[in-house]
Structure formats: structure tokens, C-alpha cells
Amino acid sequence: MRYGLALILYWLAAPPCFASNLHVVVVLSDNTRAYQTFATRYLASLPPQINARVLQSAENLDLTDTDFIVTVGTPASLSIFSQTQLPVLATMISSQSYFSLLKLRLKGSQTTAIYLDQPSIRQIHFLQAALPKLHQVGLLYSNEPAITPLKNTFKNNGFTVHSLPIEKESRLFDSLESILKSSDLLYAIPDAGVYNNRTIANILLSSYRLGVPIVGYSENLVKAGAVCGLYSTPEQLAEQAAFLSINFSKNKTFPGAGYPSEYSISINQDVARSLGIVFSSIEEIHTKVEKDESK
């Protein structure tokens, strides 16, 4: 929303400040619907002075007359990072993946990113605003190093963390039941070793049976049965990417990589009601998160 307004103002008031036509190549990882949605919204958000063409994959890459590249999704970044020294704006990539791939980038190349994941402190503020009475947080993970900063953030903000590693998917449900018995919410993280299409039905059913709500990391997880979640949509990420692209056309530089500025909150009211959880309105939660974040 914020970027949508900014983009309109740019369109109306500032055509002279654009340099001559800028050429952008948008490289998608594949034809996943989320990537397509991103590309559509990104193109729609650009002013006419920025010419963008969308490539459905990094194959047969032609970067002639290109000013910078927007990679959409981690596989696209993986392919592009080592191929060109052109500036790259990586999108729809998690912070963890971005740091892993950054070492592949050729020296001196200008690179930035809008992460896909949310900053831990924002998620903490979200839990405090949405479920203020729940402090026993359950965490399941398959990647220990990735989870440590999140655990520390929880602990530093008054939460008690109950966590268990999942070394084998076959042991998932023993750990899950143990965690659910000691936690009053299960905080799901985007870890394919734990949460995936094969496991999600039984995770949601087990947690529901024990009356423990799951806080999700995506809109689809909230629809599937998580009680609530905070995430950025492809549209929001695309608008932020368009904003950075317009800035690049003026300054020829990108800011440092960062988390999404815009995000959405959703609540599965059917699940909430069934579990006896009463939420404030989404607007109230959103306002409180923003207020806490600005402190």
C-alpha cells in the first residue's frame, strides 16, 4: 500500500528525474504462480520510462542492453549470481538463502535483495499483539544453526521456547507430540524438513486435537489450518521491488538488502473460534505491530 502510493506520486510528479529509458530483465525461477503474480504486479507498478522484460527462466539468457536484473525466487538468483556483473535485485528469496548465495557473486557486482522472510522481532511483535497471553512457544526444526537467532529473540522477549530437532521425518510425530504437550502455541517456520505437503495434515490435526494453535508463515498455511500468520504477499514484494527500481533509475544504486517493508496478517476465524481464541481486529494487530516496530 505504502509503495503503491509512492509509485503513483512518482508517476504524477516526477517524470523529469528519470534518466533515459532504463532496461530491466526480470528472471523468474519457473512458472510458479507466486512468481508470475510477482512479475505481473512488478510490471504494472513501473513507470513507462522503465522497460522491463520477463524471462520465464535463466536459460538462454540475453543481457544485451540491460541496466539491471531482478531475480524472482531462489533458483533464479542461484543461476544469475555467478553469470553477470550487472546489478542484481534478488527478490522472493529468504535472508538465509541470500547470504548463502552471496558468496557466488562476482566481485564488485552490485547486489541487493528484498527478503522473503520476516524479521524475527516483527514476528515477536506480531505474537505479542495477536496472542498476548501465550508465552510457551514450541519450535520444530531440521536446521539447528538457522533456528538459533530466532530462539534467542524469543527468549530475550519473555517467551519460553520448547524446541526439538527433526533428524528424520519418521520421528517427526514423537517430537511434535512432546512439543505440543509443553507449549501453548506452535510457531511454524518455513522448514521443508518439518512442514511440507506430506506432513502438514497430521501436524495440523495433532495440534488441533491438543488445542494448541499453530502460527503460520504463509497465507496458504493459515488457510490450511494455522490460526494466524504474518507474511508478505508477492504483490507487496513486487511493489517494493518496483520502488527500488525507480530509485535505481535516479541514483544508479540499490540500498542494502533488507526485509519486506509491507506485510499482511491473516486470521483463520473458523479455527480461532473452534479453539476459543478471540483476536483483536486485523487492523488493530497491524497497528500495534507497526507501533512496536517503530519504537
Binding site: 531462489t74 522472510d117 505437503n197 495440523l204
Partner: peptide, 24 residues
Amino acid sequence: AYAQTSDDSNFFEELPIVLSASRL
């Protein structure tokens, strides 16, 4: 690097609606 980053698709993975009306 790719092995570590494969979880990114989780954010937009299509999931079945598990806790539907008949189960709540």
C-alpha cells in the same frame, strides 16, 4: 547452497485445507 535454500518454496507452497468445517 541450493540444498540450504530449497525451503524458500515453502512460503508459497500450495497446501490442502486440513482443518475444514467438518473437522472443527
